[in-house]
Structure formats: C-alpha cells, structure tokens
Design a protein around this nucleic acid. Structure first.
Length: 478
RNA sequence: GCCCCCAUCGUCUAGUGGCCUAGGACACCACCCUUUCAAGGUGGCGGCACGGGUUCGAAUCCCGUUGGGGGUGCCA
C-alpha cells in the first residue's frame, strides 16, 4: 500500500470509522472521491477514524480495505494513499487544542453534562450557554475544553449546494477535549485534514451541520478551509437515512448475495447523478472509465435518494448478461457445490446467463442436472401446482407416452433433434410447443420454469431423461 | 423547540426563462417474438407539492405555505 504518493493534484479523503461493516452510503462517497481524485490527478487519502477506542478492532480496517478493493478502489493505485490512523495522531490533536486554549480561542469548563442540561432547563434554552467563557479556568482533570464560537456568521461554500450561511449565535461552544483529555471527533477530524493537506472534503449531507464548526476550527488554527461538498444521504422506503438497524446497508452482504461489484458501483453512482449521455444511450449502464471522466460535484442532485434494491438487481442482471463468457463461467461455477460436475455445468451455463438476477441464483436454476440419477435414486419432488397444471390436459398422458417412445431411439441425442422429435409427436395432438414441453419439463426438472428444455435434456442424457419421464408417466397413471 | 438542507412520473433522474404537448432509466401493464422463464421489440400507465408574485413567456427566478430529510452528545 502507498504510505505516501506524490500526486500533484487536489487531495481528497475518505474517513470511515471502523464499525465492522462497510456502509453502502460510505461506498458511494468513497467512489465519488475516488473518481475525482483520479481524474484530477490528485490523491485519495484513506484515514481510519479509530478514536472511539471502546469499539474498534484491527480486522475492521482490513474489512474496509477489502471492501474498497472490491469496488475498484485499490490501495496499490498511484492515487491511493494510506491507510492513516486517526489514533496515531492523538498528540497532534491535543497540541492543536492546547494552541487554541493558549490563543484564547478555547476555554475550559468544569460543568458536567448533567449540569449543562440542568442549567439549560433552568434558563429555558437548549445546549450550553457559555457559562465558563470568562471564568478563566485552568486545565484540570474533569474539565472539558470548549471552543469559543465568535460573533457573526459563518458561510460555508459548498460545491454541491452553493453558499450555506449559519448564524454563529445558534452554534454553542462545542467541546474539543473531553474531561479525560481525549479529543473529540470535530477537532481530530480537522487537525488530521490540515496535517494531510486535504483540499476537498466530499462527504454525506449529515455532516453539513458540523461544517461551520469545522470551518471555524480551520480558521482558528490558521488555515483556509478546504472546498466542501455535501452529497445527499441515501434513504430507505420510509425516506429515512439508511440505518444499520433497520436496513440492509452492508456492502459485504450485497457481495455475498451475488451482486457484481461493477453493477453495485454503477448503481451507486447513479444515485443523485446521471452519467451524461445516458438518455441518448437509453441506459444508465456506464463503464467506470466513463463515469470517472464525467463525474462532477456540481451535477449532483440535492435530494436524498432511495436505495432501491430492485433497480440494483436490474443493473446486476444486465451486468451478468453482458459478462464475458469465460469470466461468467468462472464466476458462476464458483457458486456451485463442490461435488457438482463442472463440465456438465459448463454445457448449460450459457443458457442461463441472461436469466440470472444474481450469481446466487445459479445452483437453484440448474440443480436438476445434478440430482441423484439411475434406478436407485430418490423420486423427484415435483412442484405440485406445476404438476397439476401440466397433467391437466386430457392428452397429456398420451403425449408423454409418445415422447418416451420416440426419445428411446432418437439419434443423435442433441437439442435440435430432441426438439424436432417433440414437434413430430405434438403434431398428432394439434398443440404448440409451448404446451407440449410443459409436462416433460415438470417430469424432468420438477418445476414449470427453467432453462431451455431441449438443451437441458441434451446435457442430462438419454438414460436419465427416459428414467424421469417414465417415473412421471407412472405417477400420472398410477 | 431551534438550526440547516431539500421538493419533476411509484423510484432514480434530464431539464439552469421560450426547444416541454416535460425526456430517459427501473418497476408495472399490454401486445409482438418465443421452447417455459428470461432476453429482445413495440406501445401504454404515470410527474413539475400548493398559493402568490416577477416576466410577453416559468418546471426553471423571488416570497410564502405545506411536506420530507439532516443536525441538535464529554458519538463518529
């Protein structure tokens, strides 16, 4: 991994806190930062915000790197820098706080959280009232360091939202250092950004209310603030911010459920943004190269976007359909149980490629080819509804018997001949192929739907096909 | 409560004062094709939250209302 890169361009950053899983919303902001860093010849800095010691483990960081790699953000890319760890920079955070205190930009307060609340209630206000502003308290255990919010207003210049103005009177003197001396997120975040020469902070909108505070910190620490950009949050059907508790938000989970990284990346990028040319192309499917070349913060939509698994699934289906045959075969084969014959699967694989929504659908679509075969095998479990429907026509039993007869000697055993033979048989009943194939299909696969029948029979082989057909004939008459 | 953000089909969006009778994608429906299911083709359903302005002209600009969201921690 690159501890340091020397890209001349702007410096972006992605600063997740290790929580054990990778949020799809995080993936989206990471992708946007990545697209910009690469196109602008800049750097994507990964910083792990691990200051919350109570909950975070080393393997979480590994998980983040893996997740990023999965969506194409590789730590061996020349535009990638890190990971840096916030915890490693604790001294700098405290040093910055000390400077703020010494310059008078911050002051100590001995009120406990409870006391602050009680005062607020008494005064009929919310938050902290600046009680210790001019009490000249010295640092001491149990005392928190608070930022002295100046008079006036703070204007945040946001690349996606324009100017956003905050009246400083509505911002309380927030805590920089806890009573135990540990730095707070707001401070650590800013100090790290300054140290890492971050020029662009692109993150989710939930951080917008923090921004005036951070901007004041940048200024108080003697630096011009970075370019800010707050992209809308991702929401669920109830239009609430995606949350770990209620919603499926772990990127890893989608990966494990058979979603392709490219599909996920493409879909995530279309949330709040449309690849230029999508309309003319008649599709929002676009390559990463194209999106990287076209993505612009100024074009990002301002409203929260619903993370729609249905649309993600549609994208995934398209991506599977468009996969290179060899690549597809490898990926699909990986979903099979160990003991399933790979050559046999390879024969049917092309026929199910455009029928899959996710790679996880593979086994369930072709399982009938791998069921126990021969005389001693367990009887097939039929889908009863499918069986009922297929055996309902009065000609069904006769047709099945005829098919068994014809298939007993047909040659060669390939899908074209099998189809032609079926057509000969069905002509006697004046029905169409769609109807004629129904019972044989249920007889062989147990279900009403599946891969193209004759191709499947070709793979199954004459003996087993006949055996299943005969078993079905016995069942329907007996 | 207070602060901030937002508001185009069910969903994601295009649209930056006339090219808008508002376009595309996903979903849904119908038909065609068809070896079931898919895929593909054709068509359909469906939207500028509301009210005031500004303007010759408003989805686009302004104000208000309503609605939604985010934040409001000695969490990040």
């Amino acid at each position: 991994m690159n501890e340091h890169t020397s890209q001349p361009g702007p410096r972006f950053r992605f600063a997740p806190s290790p929580t054990g899983f990778f949020h799809v919303g995080g993936a989206r902001t990471a992708l946007m930062n990545w697209a910009l860093a690469r196109r602008l010849g800049g750097t994507f800095v990964l910083r792990i915000e691990d200051t919350d010691e109570a909950r975070n483990r080393p393997e979480w960081t590994e998980g983040i790197i893996d997740a990023l790699a999965w969506i194409g953000i590789s730590d061996s890319d020349e535009h990638f820098e890190g990971p840096h760890f916030q915890s490693a920079n604790a001294d700098a955070h405290v040093a910055a706080a000390t400077r703020l205190y010494e310059s008078g930009a911050a002051y100590y307060c001995d009120l406990s959280g409870q006391e602050v609340q009680d005062r607020a209630k008494e005064l009929g206000i919310t938050g902290y009232d600046g009680y210790s502003r001019d009490r000249g308290l010295e640092p001491a255990p149990g005392r928190v360091l608070r930022f002295r919010v100046p008079e006036g207003s703070t204007v945040v210049n946001d690349l996606v939202r324009g100017e956003v103005s905050f009246d400083n009177a509505t911002i309380e003197d927030f805590v920089l250092l806890r009573g135990n001396g540990a730095p707070m997120f707001l401070l650590a975040n800013v100090v790290d950004d300054i140290e890492m020469s971050i020029s662009h902070v692109v993150r989710a909108e939930e951080h917008l209310p923090n921004t005036p505070k951070q901007q004041m910190l940048w200024n108080a620490l003697g630096h011009a603030p970075p370019a800010w950009a707050h992209v809308p949050v991702l929401v669920n059907e109830q239009r609430k911010k995606l949350s770990k508790r209620r919603d499926k938000v772990a990127l890893e989970q989608y990966r494990d459920e058979g979603f392709l990284a490219d599909a996920m990346v493409n879909y995530l990028m279309t949330l709040g943004w449309t690849p230029p040319g999508a309309e003319e192309a008649g599709t929002e499917i676009a390559t990463w190269a194209a999106m990287e070349a076209d993505f612009a913060l100024e074009d990002v939509n301002l409203s929260p976007a619903f993370f729609d698994v249905k649309k993600l699934t549609a994208f995934n289906k398209q991506y599977i359909k468009n996969m290179d045959p060899a690549e597809y075969l490898a990926a699909a084969s990986a979903e099979l149980p160990e003991d399933w014959d790979r050559d046999r699967f390879a024969a049917i694989a092309p026929h199910i490629q455009e029928r899959l929504e996710t790679l996880k659908d593979v086994p369930g679509t072709v399982d009938f080819l791998f069921w126990p075969q021969g005389d001693g095998a367990e009887p097939i479990e039929y889908d009863e509804a499918a069986w009922e429907k297929a055996t309902k026509p009065e000609w069904s039993a006769a047709l099945l018997a005829d098919v068994i007869g014809a298939y007993g000697s047909v040659a060669p055993w390939d899908h074209e001949t099998l189809k032609a033979t079926m057509e000969d048989v069905m002509a006697r009943y004046e029905i169409k192929l769609g109807k004629a194939q129904a019972l044989p299909r249920v007889a062989v696969t147990g279900r009403a739907v599946g891969p193209p029948l004759f191709e499947a029979l070709e793979v199954l082989g004459r003996d087993e096909t006949l055996r299943r057909l005969t078993a079905a004939a016995d069942r329907s008459t007996g």
